[in-house]
Structure formats: structure tokens, C-alpha cells
Write a protein that binds this DNA or RNA. Sequence first.
DNA 1: CCAAGCACCTGACGGC
DNA 2: TGCCGTCAGGTGCTTG
Length: 273
Amino acid sequence: MPELPEVEVIARGLHRSLMGRRIESVEHTDLTRLSEGADTLLPKLLGRSVERVYRRAKVLLMQLDEGLVLAFHLKMTGRVVHGGARGSEKHDRLLLKLDDGSMLSFSDMRKFGYIKSFGPGELEQWDFLKRCGPEPLETSAKDLARQVVKRKGRIKSLLLDQKVVVGVGNIYADEALFRAGIHPETRGIRISDVRAAKLFSELQGVLRQAISENGSSIRNYVNADGDAGAFQNNFNVYGRKGKECRACQSLLDAVKVGGRTSTFCPKCQLKQC
DNA sequence: CCAAGCACCTGACGGC
DNA sequence: TGCCGTCAGGTGCTTG
């Protein structure tokens, strides 16, 4: 579900509300298909305190005491929400009670998401993170551009490739391509260095703006407090097929690129093969 | 190594 | 009302 801005907003919210909280009990688990069984995960959690919550790529990371780190990948429909006491709900996978009586829940309708735990020094050895490319907001647009201008793949797929750049999903890839005036099917190798740098500069802008507006809510996303984001009101193309381009009033079109719907303006984003 | 396509899962929605 | 196809914010595996 969430892309970089949504995970970042969740991480900041949880960091504020969970710092110093201790896990008192596990109220509910459905860890079927999660990477770790309840028998090994749950004993590690009891009595641990939260020291820091942060994000790397699209992964939410919770640093606990004794060097333990919990990693949450939300995939398409995962949620991590902190709030008042409540009973378990249909898609809850893990429900923790904290020492102030509040609850932390991880739920995921489609069950693509997962939780992994890491002991001291183990997080750095995690293959998933080792394979990840640069963070888009901590790398210059020029350096990011180098990753795509030699590649034969279509630019939309390259933006979604976490080895090229992390954190970008279907929404922000389409929005960045629109802002840069690049057709999603354009081959990386057909894009000049200057236009590729412009693309990543626009990507950085759209990601920053989305974070400042609490992320985008299409159907499932809510932040750590259970509130929806607002950036979906600023979409230029995502989910707007058949509507008028905000820049030129042409009707927006959509194609499948790498199996993902890619919405674009046929006039503002000319195809260059 | 790179590019592309399908698999994983549940639910919402539109057409008949 | 119900059945069927299609679609959904991501990634992993397999195939050329």
C-alpha cells in the first residue's frame, strides 16, 4: 500500500507516540504466513521498550531496547496504527498492549505484508536492505539520473525498481513522470542526462509535498493515528484516466507498463520510444 | 546482469 | 440478488 511518503508519515507519528513505551502484553496474533512464527517472535517482544521508529525504503523500522529491531513491510494494504484500547478486528495480524494502556496494531487485509525481527547487528545483514538502492531524498537528482540513462527498460518500470531508487511506487512514479513531461513507456536510454535529472528533481518535489500533506489515501492508507492523508487531492494523473489534464485539458490516457497501470497526458508526455 | 510476466491474497465494483 | 471479470498503493520468483 504505502510508498515512501506514507511510511515516512507513519514512522514520524509512531516515533512521537511510542518513544519510551513498553510492550506489556500481546492481545492477538495471526502470524500465519508471516516470516516468523508466534513462538519465536512473541517472547522477544514482551517487556521491550521502544527507542526509535524510522523508515528505510518502504520498510517501517522500530528500534527496541536490547538491540532488537522490528521491521514492518506493509506491501499493498498493511497498516500500523497506535490508539486507545480496543479488541481485535478482522484483519489484525498483531495487537500489542503498551504500558500506558494504548494499543499498537498491525493489520493487513491481503496478507502480503510481514514483520521480521532482528537482533543486535543483524539488520545490516538483511538481504532486502542490502539489495536496496539509494534513498531519493538523500541523494542528488543528478546521481539518481545516472541509474536510469544507461538502461533499456521503460522508465516507469525503472522508477518502480527498488535497486534504482527506493520508496517509489505506482502513484509517485506516475506523478513524477507527468511533472517531468516524460511518457511512462520511454526507454531509460532514450532520456538525456538533463531530462533524467529533471525527472528525479520532480520526484523529490512530489515526495516532499506528499509527506507534508500526510501522504495519499486511496482506500486503505491511514497514518499512525488512524487519519487519512490529503495528497490524493493534488494528483495530476494517478487515478484520473479519462479526466482532463490540469495543464492542457487533453483527456488523460492509461497504459500497462510492467503490469502496472500508468496514467499520463498524451500531449504533455510525448512518447519518445 | 537485465527485462518482463506472473504469483501471492482479499475485497470492492461494474456488467449482465 | 448473484456470479464473473477486473482492478488495487508491492515485491519475489521464473523465464528468456
